[in-house]
């Protein structure tokens, strides 16, 4: 059963991304939103973690929250898909449940 995991904290502030990635099963989806979008950026110390998560899970980042923080989509790690709120709603509907890692 696939799950949409949402992470809204910066990985440099809290360890919710780590906790989330520890639970993510193959075929699941992870959505980075709010300050969670910092984990989607190229060149940070968490990039290897995200890249290895991308081997088994799908990773998404909320575009409006990237933009609100001044980041363009070309700053995002390859393999991560940028979605808008409509995409967020679709992900919540497509997956069997939604787990927020607050």
């Amino acid at each position: 059963m696939s799950t949409l995991h949402t992470v809204n904290k910066s990985p440099f502030e809290k360890n919710s991304l780590d906790t989330c990635l520890g639970y993510v099963a193959g075929g699941s989806a992870v959505l980075l939103l709010e300050d969670g979008v910092y984990a989607a950026l190229k060149g940070t110390s968490v990039e290897p973690k995200i890249k290895s998560a991308l081997d088994s899970a799908k990773v998404y980042v909320l575009g409006p929250d990237l933009k609100a923080r001044g980041f363009s989509e070309d700053r995002v790690i390859e393999g991560i898909s940028v979605v808008d709120y409509a995409g967020f709603v679709d992900l919540a509907a497509e997956n069997a449940k939604v787990q927020a890692w607050l």
Partner: peptide, 15 residues
């Protein structure tokens, strides 16, 4: 406080 109410609002509106 932070952004949760905004995120929830936009999610709800879009849904």
């Amino acid at each position: 406080q932070h952004q949760a109410s905004d995120s929830a609002y936009f999610f709800t509106k879009t849904a």
